[in-house]
Design a protein around this nucleic acid. Structure first.
Length: 262
DNA sequence: ATGCCGAAGTTACTTCGA
C-alpha cells in the first residue's frame, strides 16, 4: 500500500492538481495539511468521485488538516490530548484515523514565527502534547505513524543554508529537543530519498527562485513505530509536484508499505 | 529546464507562512 503526506497550501485552490496527482501516484491514504478550508467546505464530492473518503478538520482561513483514504477511514480523532490553544482557540492542526491495517495522524505543527514569540512557546507546547498523545499508538503492535508538516529541521543538513537562518525558528535546539521527545515515544524518522539533488527537501519558498535553486528545507516528516517502519519498503519526496504554476510550496512525501502479513 | 509569492477573509488590504 502507498501512504503520503502533503502540505497542500489550500485544498480547494489545489484541488485540480491534487486530483491529477492522486490519479498519477495512486496513494491509498493521504495526510494533508494547511487545507485552509472549513470542514464543511472540503471538496468531499470530488474526492469521493476519485475514490477517496475524507476526514477533515478546519475553520476556513489558516491551518486545517485532513486524511483521505480509499481503504477505509475509521475511528477519526480530532485534536491532541490536552492540545494547547492559541488566542483562546483550539486550532485544527491534528487529525487521526485508522485506514485498513494502519493508524495515522496528520499534523500541522505551529510555525513559531520568531524565537521568543508566544507562537514559539505554543509550538513547543504543541509538540509536547503530540508526544503524549501518540505514545500509546507508537508503543502498540499495529503499524502507526505520525505524518505531516513539523516545521522543524531535524538536523543542520535539513536546511539549505543555515547561515540564512540566524537565530530563527525551525532550527533551534529547543525545537529539535521537542521533536526528539516525539520520537522518544517510540517513533523513527523515515528518511526519504530525493528524486533529484542530494537531499530530500520538502519545502521551498515561493520567493527568490528558491525551488529552481534548490534552496529548500526538510520539515515534512513521517515518524513511524517499529511495525510501520518494518513494513516500509520505500520513501521518497515527489519534487515533481512542486513544479509549475499553481503548485504548493511543499512537496509530498510518499511511502510504500508491504502489509501483506497483516 | 523547476523561474523571481500565494491564499483567504475582512473584498482592499492585511495577515500568515518558514
Amino acid at each position: 500500500m502507498r501512504v503520503a503526506t502533503w502540505n497542500i497550501n489550500s485544498l480547494n485552490a489545489r484541488l485540480d492538481r491534487l486530483l491529477t496527482w492522486l490519479a498519477e501516484t495512486g496513494p491509498d491514504v493521504v495526510c494533508l495539511q494547511e487545507t485552509k478550508c472549513a470542514a464543511d467546505d472540503a471538496p468531499t464530492d470530488a474526492l469521493a468521485a476519485a475514490g477517496y473518503e475524507t476526514a477533515a478538520a478546519g475553520t476556513g482561513r489558516w491551518n486545517g488538516v485532513a486524511i483521505l483514504s480509499r481503504i477505509g477511514l475509521e475511528s477519526v480523532a480530532v485534536g491532541l490530548d490536552d492540545q494547547p490553544e492559541f488566542d483562546d482557540a483550539a486550532e485544527p492542526r491534528a487529525i487521526g484515523a485508522t485506514c485498513g491495517p494502519i493508524r495515522l495522524w496528520s499534523v500541522y505543527v505551529p510555525n513559531g514565527r520568531d524565537v521568543g514569540h508566544r507562537h514559539y512557546r505554543y509550538k513547543l507546547d504543541f509538540l509536547a502534547a503530540l508526544a503524549a498523545t501518540v505514545g500509546p499508538g507508537a508503543a502498540g503492535a499495529e503499524p502507526f505513524a505520525v505524518l505531516g508538516d513539523f516545521n522543524v529541521c531535524p538536523t543542520d543538513d535539513d536546511v539549505w543554508d543555515l547561515a540564512e537562518w540566524p537565530g530563527t525558528t525551525h532550527v533551534t535546539a529547543a525545537e529539535r529537543d521537542a521533536l526528539a521527545e516525539v520520537e522518544r515515544a517510540g517513533l523513527t524518522d523515515l528518511f526519504p530519498r530525493p528524486l533529484k539533488h542530494d537531499w530530500p527537501y520538502t519545502f521551498w519558498d515561493y520567493r527568490n527562485l528558491d525551488f529552481p535553486k534548490n534552496r529548500g528545507m526538510r520539515i515534512d516528516l513521517a515518524l513511524a513505530n517499529p511495525a510501520f517502519e518494518a513494513a516500509c519498503t520505500d520513501a521518497y519526496v515527489d519534487r515533481n509536484a512542486r513544479k509549475g504554476k499553481g503548485a504548493s510550496d511543499h512537496a509530498p512525501v510518499v511511502l510504500d508499505l508491504d502489509t501483506t502479513d497483516r
